[in-house]
Design a protein around this nucleic acid. Structure first.
Lengths: 251, 251
DNA sequence: CCTCCAAAAAATGTGCACATTTGCTGCGCC
DNA sequence: GGCGCAGCAAATGTGCACATTTTTTGGAGG
């Protein structure tokens, strides 16, 4: 039976089985970036054919990336119905913040056992950067440095698992910012970060945790549903503009 | 160039695009189970063709599952070189245990704020089960219940993110047990679990964390490299025996 | 005008045939 | 006898042609 199919075609092996891992990564990074930057609307559908066209790669390439993002819980995959940008509920967001808060409590508990002057100094250097960014009104840098502070804390433990958890939480919460925008420009207050460092320096676990807890509750309380605030584009072509040559015959 | 492909063949659409999500899941679960049970040797290669033959599914099916397990860091994927069972170093194991310890410290900190009689009662019920299993010498149940205790703790917070982190850590550590066997049958001592519950009941954060910490350090100290202790089978056919009919022509 | 249903269109899922790469074996050469 | 390299076998990676869904469309009936 097996239908000896007649060696149908075989284009001049141009870019066929060409192993190009970098291309996968490029598409992955592009979509991930768009997600993290909040350029994609919350419930938006990410269909394979258009993306394949936009990036100029095969549909399978796109498919693989989409499923990967789904496995990382960055996209919502529904069998036979494709990928969508998740639309987190307010409880989902609170859940992420709470997880971060709980995790940091554990980190601080462990950290007071290992504080040394070098660590305090590194943290203070970071605080100075944060203050500088806040002073000159650089909002983008402030957001970035604010998250980086917590990363510094967990990385001080040198535990890859914990660092990964935090990175996971942070990336998830940055996606959510596009929906539940944390108010105006009042990101993590630098003072609160400073208070954490101060408590660490004093080896005062209870106070460090208390400050950290207040800090997070403070941020959480600012969450509010900001429906129309997200101008995230609807059509994918605009979002991923100029990512790939999009091989048209012209040119 | 564009290769007018000549509609080569088309077998009698037997079971071609047959959507069968359950089959993916079955293969995934089978391999995951073998991994968690420690039935797979530490550095073993998991090649696609043999697995496809064993499970009686297409190679793509296997491939997808393998990559998924790789994304979950349960398998070590090397481009163009396939999947291998990871060979964790002693530091890797310590890292997992430390992460668990830190995480639980945070969980306990948060938990003392929400303890109520119902929770204490549930935990005590669980402790009774653990003691019963220990008394009747049921090692399998003891191991399972011992892990379940920590799951109970984190689930008491009702935070999906944190629960997922713990599940991740637990599944990772159970794989490692096959290499660094935690001594004889001295798993988590029930007494230490009881002491945690007792501290919780008393709303004594510091003591709960201290006990938990001691508990984990206790377990960690028992880790040792047990080279020859793992009789994990080498050939895959034996490991996955009788999983799938392995459709031979003979009915 | 809305609802419901059938047919068409589009999108997702999967097996297969290759291309490419890796691993291995054996033969020649130093 | 060992070392290196050419050739071969096996395994991985990828595009493509379908099958199978899902979604949209269009029209008949209430």
């Amino acid at each position: 039976m097996t239908t000896q199919r007649g060696r149908n075609d075989k284009r001049s092996g141009k870019g066929l089985g060409k192993a190009n891992p970098a291309e996968d990564e490029a598409v992955y990074q592009a979509i991930l970036h768009a997600l993290l930057e909040g350029k994609l609307k919350a419930g938006a559908k990410l269909a394979e054919p258009p993306l394949a066209e936009i990036f100029g790669v095969s549909r399978e390439r796109i498919r693989k990336v989409l499923h990967r993002l789904g496995a990382e819980r960055r996209l919502e995959m529904i069998p036979n119905r494709g990928a969508r940008v998740p639309r987190p509920t307010l409880d989902d967001v609170r859940s992420v913040y709470e997880a971060h808060r709980v995790l940091e409590a554990g980190v601080l508990t462990q950290l007071v056992r290992h504080v040394d002057d070098a660590l305090i100094e590194r943290l203070n250097t970071h605080l100075a950067e944060e203050r500088a960014a806040a002073t000159r009104g650089d909002r983008a840098a402030s957001v970035r440095l604010s998250g980086a502070f917590h990363v510094h804390l967990v990385e001080a433990l040198g535990n890859a698992e914990l660092s990964r958890f935090l990175a996971d939480l942070l990336s998830r919460s940055s996606v959510m910012v596009s929906v539940y925008e944390p108010a105006t420009d009042s990101i993590c207050a630098v003072d609160e970060h400073g208070a954490i460092v101060e408590a660490l320096r004093a080896r005062d676990v209870a106070r460090a945790i208390a400050v950290s807890r207040e800090h997070f509750l403070h941020v959480e309380s600012r969450l509010h549903l900001d429906d129309d605030a997200a101008p995230a584009s609807e059509d994918l072509t605009a979002v991923f503009a100029a990512r790939r040559p999009k091989r048209r015959k012209a040119r």
